[in-house]
Simulated assay, not measured.
Amino acid sequence: MSRNTSQRPVKATTVPQAQGPNRRRSVASVPEQLDGDACQEAISLLLHCHDEPSVFKKMKMTLEHRQNLVHDSQRTTDVLKTFPRFLDVKGPLNQDFVLLFGEETSSRLLERWDTTFEPKVIEESKHLTKSTELHRLLNAAEKHAEDDDTNWDSDVASLLLLLHLLPPTAGRKRINISASDAEDKTVHFHKVYMSHLLKSHWAKSHS
């Protein structure tokens, strides 16, 4: 019976498309992308340019080159070395996100954060293994603690809780770090309003 049964057509195997940060997104809709010597010249100009409109323009024109770096496992760590203006100019990172995802998508996170995402992050974090840092962030996120030198406000604390929800990355050569250490490597926070208040108080007392 098996010999006489006609062979069934072999189904074509579908290769799953990478999602999330690993998905390669097209920059075809972004005009004036530079390559070759023109791109390298723009990158060199960015290092010494102090005119913010020019910085944003050059960053926009080098988006495709930057995406090539991001998706190259051997060169990913070179992104901030090649484009250090991410570190001292506010806005280029947001511009990249808008160019890749569009205005509607880029604003959706902040629009829905308070009502949709933040409560879920807090609830999921309650099921994690408790630690001093996690307890501190949960208290701040649920507004059980006043904002001081050791506690962030609810929004920032709930964003930092996301680091504790991220699973460790598998791989031989990857170095595992704690979620608390990852906070310092994610972004640096400075509560500048305290120094501003102290300066104002000092000025009044000596006037």
Rank of each mutant, 00 (worst) to 15 (best):
R3M: 14
R3A: 13
R8C: 08
R8D: 09
V10D: 06
K11Y: 05
K11H: 08
K11L: 11
T13I: 10
V15H: 07
P16Q: 13
A18C: 10
Q19A: 07
N22Q: 15
A28M: 06
V30S: 03
E32N: 00
D35H: 09
E41F: 00
A42E: 08
L45Q: 14
L47G: 03
L47R: 04
C49N: 14
D51F: 11
E52V: 09
E52R: 13
E52F: 02
F56D: 04
K57T: 12
K57Y: 08
M59E: 07
M59P: 05
M61K: 01
T62P: 09
H65N: 09
R66I: 00
Q67P: 00
Q67M: 06
Q67V: 03
L69C: 02
S73V: 04
R75D: 10
T76V: 09
T76A: 08
V79P: 05
V79F: 11
L80I: 06
L80H: 04
L80K: 06
K81E: 12
K81I: 12
K81H: 09
F86C: 06
F86M: 03
V89K: 08
P92L: 15
L93A: 15
L93C: 15
N94G: 14
V98K: 15
L100T: 13
F101E: 12
G102A: 08
E104V: 11
S106F: 10
S107T: 12
L109Y: 03
L110I: 07
L110F: 02
R112W: 10
T115L: 13
T116D: 06
F117S: 08
E118D: 05
K126H: 11
K126W: 06
E133Q: 12
L138Y: 08
A140S: 14
E142C: 07
K143D: 05
H144W: 01
A145H: 13
A145G: 10
E146W: 00
D147W: 14
N151I: 02
D155P: 00
L159K: 01
L159Q: 03
L162W: 07
L163A: 14
T169E: 04
A170T: 05
R172G: 13
K173C: 10
R174Q: 00
R174Y: 01
N176T: 09
N176I: 12
S180V: 11
K191R: 05
K191V: 01
V192I: 13
V192E: 09
H196T: 13
S200K: 15
H201P: 02
W202T: 04
K204P: 02
H206N: 06
